[in-house]
Amino acid sequence: MTKDDRLDAILAAHAGREGALLPILHDLQAEFGCVPADCYQPIADALRLSRAEVSGVVSFYHDFRDAPAGKHVIKLCRAEACQSMGGAEMIARLERALGMKIGETKGDVTLEAVYCLGLCACAPAAMVGDRLVGRASSERIEALVAEVSA
């Protein structure tokens, strides 16, 4: 299937749905790893919106990317409950150990902030790929990163 076919299939799957734009954007990101800018116009046409409206929605939400992330996305919680258990220090140690900052991609690895995973009673919390980590430490996350990128 070409890229256009894949886009058309996603648009067709949501045809006629109420408030279809977010579900479409989620599906696109699952398919392409991001929401490619050249999809804005076809989406706009399918939903009878302007290209600017689609672009505005994509840019509003933190989840939607304009370029794919690294193969392994590591999300580190910055919120208060995790801070109370040394989360900020953990993030700083991990940044030093991996030689990268939050918001950066290095090789296969993307480091991101997240604001609460709902794991506040087993803080600090993180997510390595699909895997949730409670009572996290920089050593444990480093080990998991090494494991997934091996």
Partner: peptide, 19 residues
């Protein structure tokens, strides 16, 4: 949702739901 804290506010949530 798509990673926006503000969407917990009910009117913001409704806008998000509407796309």
């Amino acid at each position: 949702g798509a990673g926006a804290y503000i969407c917990g506010e009910e009117t913001s949530l409704l806008n998000s739901l509407e796309g």
